[in-house]
């Protein structure tokens, strides 16, 4: 056998080698980001539908300088510089999971500050909000309508139509009605202007009994 007399330094080397590998395996690939909510819990939480901030309410919050709220702008820095809601902090979507930002979110969670996320539209904030929510940050809310509505839409409660524009999931049209109307209209048209009528010539019956012939 080759290893009949392994010397001490060889054993020490093997031991250190194995140790390094084990420690490497334990530390590498260790996901430091984890979900706190299971899929089913997050579906439940979605259905509860509680994490919405209405733009008209946000106006009040900003004006009254209510404590316990912080605004996070998820758009990129260029858009942020061009204009943002007063008092907002810029955290672009792709950096919300960086270490220092998570530390910040942890701090907000600890003193139960409500974090209002907004993007250009509600859709932009939806994904980040869901991820943070599933990671256990319960204090996350989404601004309905996003920055776009906040800067363009009517914010006075009395100016708003019955279904404000920011409730994007409301059907904007009467789908069934439109389909009915368009379907039947084109049906009638087809009968009226459709194909040219086929004229069948009526043959005149011969009346006389006796006709000359060969």
């Amino acid at each position: 056998m080759k290893f009949k007399h392994p010397n001490r330094s060889f054993v020490a080397f093997v031991v250190i080698f194995v140790l390094v590998i084990v420690i490497g395996l334990l530390t590498i690939n260790k996901p430091d980001l984890k979900y706190k909510l299971s899929i089913d819990e997050s579906v439940e939480q979605l259905m509860a539908n509680e994490d919405k901030i209405y733009p008209e309410d946000l106006v009040g919050i900003i004006e009254m300088e209510e404590p316990g709220y912080v605004l996070i702008d998820l758009r990129n820095p260029y858009e942020f510089i061009k204009g943002h809601i007063a008092g907002a902090i810029n955290i672009p979507t792709n950096s919300i999971l960086s270490k220092d930002k998570l530390k910040m979110f942890n701090r907000y969670a600890a003193d139960s500050t409500v974090v209002v996320l907004y993007g250009q539209t509600q859709l932009e904030a939806n994904g980040p909000w869901m991820i943070l929510k599933q990671m256990g940050y319960d204090n996350m809310k989404v601004l309905l309508g996003g920055y776009h509505y906040f800067t363009t839409g009517p914010l006075d409660f009395y100016d708003m139509p019955e279904i404000p524009e920011y409730l994007v999931e409301e059907p904007a049209y009467d789908y069934y009605g439109i389909m009915e109307a368009m379907g039947s209209k084109s049906g009638e048209d087809a009968g009226a202007v459709g194909q040219p009528q086929i004229v069948i010539p009526v043959r005149k019956k011969k009346e006389s009994v006796v006709e000359g012939g060969c």
């Binding site: 899929i39 579906v43 939806n126």
Partner: peptide, 13 residues
């Protein structure tokens, strides 16, 4: 969905 918010939520899940 009617807009894309609900669909996006389903997508994330």
């Amino acid at each position: 969905s009617n807009s894309d918010i609900l669909a996006d939520q389903a997508w994330v899940l």
